[in-house]
Simulated scan of single mutants.
Amino acid sequence: MKCPFCHETATKVVESRTADEGNSIRRRRECENCGKRFTTYERIEERPLLVIKNDGRREVFSPEKLMHGLVKAVEKRPVSMEVLQKIVTEVESQVRTQFDKEVPSSYLGELVMEKLRTVDEVAYVRFASVYRRFRDVNEFMEEIKRFLEGESG
């Protein structure tokens, strides 16, 4: 590992601990040349996961894009960022476990709605209205009716 201060390659690890909920290792290093300390992170290189859109296009799965959609759905609702981050982490973990390289966007959307349903009813309906692209009020009312009856999809 190259020292960011003097660019010498002789460094030693002085402390290691898990970080990011066990998904990475934080290492505190010391340069043997200049004595300065710096931190590095080691994490598993994840394979890219592609989302297959309804029109057949493929795009790289983006936890940031998912978070953005969730933030819009919970706008002015009593849902914390920690809860949203937990949903993103759970969805990504479940998708990576069940799919090797590609995941249909329909599966992803249904999974997110399932998680939102237990967190906030209004956020669930908001997300569903964007995800399912209701063509008119009747489709929207049908979704609300299914929700109230305890169904989804």
Rank of each mutant, 00 (worst) to 15 (best):
M1Q: 12
K2H: 02
K2A: 01
C3H: 13
C3E: 13
P4E: 08
P4A: 13
C6P: 08
H7R: 10
H7P: 00
A10E: 15
T11P: 01
T11M: 12
V13D: 07
V13P: 01
V14P: 08
V14R: 12
S16W: 06
S16Q: 01
A19C: 07
E21Y: 01
E21S: 11
G22M: 05
R26G: 03
R28N: 07
E30V: 14
C31R: 11
E32V: 02
N33L: 08
N33A: 14
G35P: 04
R37V: 08
R37C: 02
T39K: 05
T40K: 11
Y41R: 05
Y41I: 08
Y41P: 00
Y41V: 06
I44V: 15
E45T: 12
P48E: 02
V51S: 03
I52C: 00
I52W: 00
I52Y: 02
K53N: 06
N54R: 14
D55H: 03
E59I: 04
V60Q: 11
F61N: 00
S62T: 10
E64F: 03
G69W: 00
K72L: 13
P78M: 00
V79Q: 08
S80K: 14
E82T: 09
V83M: 13
Q85D: 07
K86R: 12
I87T: 04
E90N: 15
V91M: 03
Q94R: 14
Q94A: 14
Q94L: 06
R96T: 06
Q98D: 15
F99L: 10
P104E: 07
P104D: 03
S106C: 00
L108H: 08
L108N: 09
L108Q: 13
L111A: 12
L111M: 14
M113T: 00
D120E: 08
D120T: 02
E121A: 13
V122M: 06
A123E: 01
Y124R: 09
V125R: 08
S129H: 09
D136T: 11
N138V: 13
E143L: 09
R146C: 01
E149P: 02
E149R: 15
E151W: 03
G153W: 09
